[in-house]
């Protein structure tokens, strides 16, 4: 018969015997939400760690993709969405290519970011891009140095995009407004005092 290990610490013993997760902070719907947005089988993760082992962000930060996968399965919504590491994924898809369970952990992260945004949790650089596209159609708009360089190359000073055809801008703005994205970006940035 196997003998039970004893660490001589009743409090620790009780903790180790407890195989259940007790926390008021879980949201049983979190996993379903993640699966719906990511369209990947996030519940299939068996925590092998191949994803973290493939991740270029892991060796230089506390970001662990495997941890986020576990948080998804356990419904630890607040823990996942409030962790600043959520935004350190470069979306390189190495983990997705290597996951032995054919899960797309990258898309799980994207889904969690989408869910975080619903609570206004979002780094400001993402919102600045929204504002730029709303006003110019481009995330990286043209500038004067580039305009004269284009001219020297025999290209039009502005590319044949929304820059040359501003009549296409209302279409872009209508699409963004449909989702109230610009409105929310402006509001969050204003609340943060820019």
């Amino acid at each position: 018969m196997a003998t039970e290990k004893n660490y001589g610490n009743p409090e620790l013993e009780a903790k180790l015997r407890d195989r259940y997760l007790y926390t008021d902070d879980t949201n049983p719907e979190f996993l379903n939400d993640v699966k719906k947005v990511s369209r990947t089988i996030a519940h299939m993760c068996y925590q092998c760690g191949t994803c973290t082992g493939s991740c270029p962000s892991a060796p230089r930060s506390s970001y662990r993709i495997r941890l986020f996968m576990r948080r998804g399965v356990l419904g630890l919504e607040k823990e996942a969405l409030n962790d600043p590491d959520l935004w350190l994924c470069t979306t390189c898809y190495s983990c997705t290519d290597r996951c032995p369970r054919d899960i797309a952990p990258t898309d799980v992260i994207m889904a969690m970011r989408n869910l975080a945004f619903k609570y206004d949790i979002v780094p400001r650089n993402f919102l600045k891009t929204v504002q730029l596209i709303y006003t110019t159609g481009h995330g990286v708009p043209n500038n004067d140095v580039n305009r004269s360089a284009r001219e020297k190359l025999g290209l039009s000073r502005d590319p044949p995009t929304t820059h040359s055809y501003p009549e296409f801008m209302p279409g872009i703005q209508k699409i963004i407004d449909h989702y109230k994205l610009k409105e929310n970006a402006d509001r969050i940035l204003a609340e943060e005092g820019q």
């Binding site: 979306t91 979002v122 929304t162």
Partner: peptide
């Protein structure tokens, strides 16, 4: 003609 940002998959896809 009239194309814009793709839109940036990191920035827009994340939000």
């Amino acid at each position: 003609k009239g194309a814009g940002c793709c839109p940036a998959p990191g920035a827009f896809g994340s939000i």
